[in-house]
Design a protein around this nucleic acid. Structure first.
Length: 827
DNA sequence: ACCGTGCATGAGCGC
DNA sequence: CGCTCATGCACGGTT
């Protein structure tokens, strides 16, 4: 029971004494030899409790004793564990009172004869703090990959007392965390962060204070050793996923950080500082929310597989991938897509270690085609190849663009590579990197606040009921908020590199502009009424929230109308133009039309018409984001144009047919009103600032001030300007909209009118806030300089009859051209 | 001019 | 200091 079997199928040595620990490796692992056949392999599992000294000895971090890993004679100082690793005897004495016994699966019970050290138990969650997870890794994988495979278990924790019933083989020298049978059967490499922590330290519970999960989670350098030795049921001695694979072992010497891009330098656990009893409740909570990084199941490459590539796929996701319980999904690795990966080049850079571990070995740069199945079951063929890079290689998957596009992946999203057994078929899943904030909010209640902001794995409902009630597994799997204070993942493994291209920024800009339609005042916001030039404006201190998107259009008669889509039936309902809808809105809330206050009521607008709305918007958006801006039309929704018209009309009174204070625009949508309102507020503040500046000028301090930067980029902010409204217009709400847009189309959505640093730091080329900075007459001057007087006149005069509230094309072009001219001026 | 390919470069990180 | 890898970029082929 619990013996280790030599992976050399010609050997079949089965008992612990037949294994001896070898020498300490540079990497901190061990080499292990089979006494029987001499098979050796590198145990890639790090010694977690021993620090490798320069002289080759290891020093127990807990008691300070030094051992030499390859020195059998020093056994009086340490003890080998059947499951692998070395335990300091001194420390082990402290854990003799293990209260929880693991349920072991005798290796004899395993069909293929390869033992599993997986221990099964249904420990109550309250015992989690006293349990430790077996270091386990996928035996199956090892059996497949080499005759010289490592079944070595890296339990380098101080082990339980030698007098233990299983002391002879050391198998149960420590309590092992229960792994659900399901996982054993399915064969997931089951390393969980939580288990890691507990496995490392729980055995110290009697000798020193127990490290709480919380502490562990907050300690990024906590070791993560929780492997499951298991077998591949029904697939004895399977072949490696690709020919030629030689398992050098799996390096477990890295601590999963559970945060992409967060690298840890040390594998060894940090010395325990405090003892905290694990709160099972807290544990549960953490468990339920977090995906954990799984150490790769195997790897023939000796290269370290950085934790950042450890798959954080959940079992549910795995199950979804596999489709049925008859398949075993072996998570291999994952990668956050870089801009290059997700770009049009179609090359996905593979981490070298992953490529060498899980992809077929290639000697020619041309590589080989690799078939990978996506989560939908669709097969993709990529060219797996490499480039010489210095003295190394750089592995890439070529031809991934169709797949990336099919999955609608972008930079920052994560692709996961797994393998389905039997069959050794590669599958790739993905996780979108969206909803970070949402997830953050959802998980912010975690005791330590740790969580990732990740969207659920593709197509996987995280809330799926657990098969077989994987409570303990959950405990193991989920709570890995080691992230602790790092709340968000970097987009990309190297944060430095993910730049937003100007095109992307443009896309974002458009998106933002469109998002104006969604802005609503914060529910708790109380407006402050500000009077500006006889206008009454609402000012909000709270940032806006998003409401439901609606469509504004103008009838032939010039009458504006607003349309919204029911969230239930998707039918479009006409609404009053001044209505602001909540994010969720259904027909039942249509209090303005008694005939269409139910989803059963027919559509008032044909689908064709609706489609035409969006098509027009899309076309225009494309034009805006691809190329010649001069030739581009203006804002598809007409919002910006109308807003522009409003502002122009408001500030270029002489040139607008209607003077300020009068209703110049027929668009009285709340967005326009809100924008205008905000603009006016900002203008007011600007005036105040200008007054202060003038005072400075009077003191001769401002003589060298260059032209106000905002003066040069008014036009670029046209799209963000605001429409005028009649003095009678008064929206029931308002929003704050602070927008800083760089000259390259980048946005700073965080700027705040009250924060001078934001405004002052704003690069030239921006619009709204910079415009606000300038005196109102600067806008006027600018408009005149750019010949926008006619623009204003035309726009205002035609806005009423313009279809869908859009200005005529020439007007839009004039605005864009003006913007271009402005850029030229800046240049 | 555009695009694909292959290599070079260098920041970041681990040892 | 060396390695990894994201990205730049030169070069050649294609449109």
């Amino acid at each position: 029971m619990g013996s280790k079997i030599c992976m050399n199928e010609n050997c079949k040595a089965t008992t612990s004494p037949e294994w001896k620990r070898g020498w300490g490796l540079k990497s901190g692992g061990f080499a292990t030899l089979c006494f029987n056949c001499g098979s050796s392999y590198e145990n890639l599992v790090f010694c977690e409790t021993f620090h490798l000294e320069e002289d080759g000895w290891r020093k127990c971090k807990l008691c300070g004793k030094r051992i030499h890993c390859g020195c059998i004679a020093s056994k009086d100082l340490y003890d080998y564990m059947d499951s692998g690793g070395v335990g300091c005897k001194t420390c082990a004495k402290g854990v003799e009172n293990c209260s929880i016994r693991p349920i072991e699966i005798p290796i004899d019970d395993v069909p293929n004869g390869f033992g599993t050290l997986t221990t099964l138990a249904n420990l109550p969650s309250s015992n989690v703090d006293n349990t430790r997870n077996c270091n386990s890794f996928d035996m199956e994988q090892f059996t497949r990959l080499s005759n010289t495979m490592e079944a070595n278990q890296p339990s380098l924790f101080p082990q339980c007392q030698k007098g233990d019933a299983n002391a002879s083989n050391g198998l149960v020298k420590h309590e092992e965390k229960i792994l659900p049978a399901k996982e054993v059967g399915i064969g997931f490499p089951n390393l969980t962060q939580q288990s890691v922590g507990s496995s490392i330290f729980a055995n110290l519970s009697n000798s020193r204070p127990t490290l709480g999960l919380k502490d562990m989670y907050e300690s990024p350098a906590q070791p993560s050793l929780n492997f499951t030795l298991r077998t591949s049921l029904g697939t004895p001695n399977p072949m490696p996923p690709f020919p030629g694979g030689v398992v050098e072992g799996l390096e477990q010497n890295k601590v999963p950080t559970f945060q992409q891009g967060q690298r840890t330098r040390h594998i060894s656990p940090k010395p325990l500082k405090t003892g905290l009893n694990i709160s099972s409740e807290a544990n549960k909570r953490m468990v339920s929310q977090t995906r954990i990084a799984r150490p790769p199941a195997e790897g023939r490459g000796r290269n370290q597989l950085l934790p950042r590539y450890w798959p954080r796929i959940t079992d549910q996701e795995l199950q979804q991938l596999s489709g049925d319980l008859n398949s075993t999904i072996v998570p291999l690795f994952e990668k956050v897509l870089s801009a290059s990966d997700a770009g049009r080049i179609g090359r996905l850079v593979l981490p070298k270690a992953c490529a060498e571990a899980y992809f077929p070995p290639i000697s020619q740069s041309e590589g080989v085609p690799v078939r990978i199945q996506d989560i939908k079951g669709k097969d993709w063929t990529f060219q797996f190849r490499f480039w010489p890079n210095n003295n190394s290689r750089m592995y890439v998957l070529e031809g991934v663009t169709p797949c990336i596009q099919n999955m609608q992946l972008q930079a920052g999203d994560t692709v996961t590579f797994s393998r389905i057994d039997p069959g050794s078929k590669l599958v790739m899943g993905f996780r979108k990197a969206t909803n970070v904030e949402m997830q953050d909010a959802q998980t912010s209640s975690l005791p330590n606040g740790g969580h990732y902001g990740e969207a659920p794995f593709s197509g996987v409902n995280e809330d799926l009921p657990n098969n077989g009630g994987r409570t303990s597994e959950d405990l193991l799997e989920r709570p890995m908020p080691i992230l602790g204070k790092k709340r968000t993942r970097n987009i990309g493994s190297k944060s430095k590199r993910l730049h937003m291209h100007s095109e992307d920024a443009m896309e974002l800009r458009v998106t933002w502009e469109e998002s104006q339609e969604l802005l609503r005042p914060h529910p708790s916001a109380k407006p402050t009424i500000v009077m500006i030039e006889d206008h009454e404006f609402e000012e909000f201190d709270e940032p806006p929230v998003f409401g439901k998107r609606t469509i504004f259009r103008a009838r032939a008669s010039g009458e504006q109308e607003q349309w919204a889509q029911c969230d239930d039936c998707s039918k479009w309902r006409r609404l009053p133009v001044d209505v602001l809808l909540p994010p969720k809105w259904t027909c039942s809330a249509n209090i303005w039309d008694s005939h269409r206050c139910s989803c059963s009521a027919p559509d008032e607008i044909s689908p064709m018409e609706v489609e035409s709305f969006f098509r027009a918007g899309k076309d225009s958006k494309k034009r805006r984001t691809t190329g010649n801006k001069v030739a581009q039309e203006y804002e598809p929704s007409g919002l910006d144009a109308l807003a522009t018209a409003a502002v122009l009309g408001d500030n270029v009174g002489d040139q607008a047919p209607k003077r300020k204070g009068q209703a110049q625009s027929t668009c009285i949508c709340n967005v326009c009103k809100t924008v205008k309102r905000r603009f006016k507020t900002l203008m007011l503040r600007k005036k105040k600032r200008q007054s202060e500046r003038e005072a400075e000028v009077a003191q001769g301090k401002d003589q060298n001030h260059p032209k106000d930067e905002s003066e040069t980029d008014v036009a670029s902010g046209l799209a963000l300007l605001h429409m005028n409204h009649s003095e009678n217009e008064r929206s029931p709400s308002g929003v704050q909209m602070e927008v800083a847009e760089t000259s390259k189309g980048q946005l700073d959505l965080n700027s705040h009118p009250n924060r001078d640093e934001d405004m002052l730091a704003e690069p030239a080329g921006l619009s709204m806030t910079s415009l606000v900075h300038s005196p109102s007459h600067q806008l006027e001057m600018y408009l005149q300089r750019n010949g926008l007087g006619n623009f204003v006149s035309r726009l205002v005069s035609t806005a009423g009859g313009e279809s869908e509230g859009r200005p005529p094309d020439d007007v839009r072009r004039a605005a864009v051209a003006s913007e271009q001219q402005d850029k030229v001026d800046e240049g």
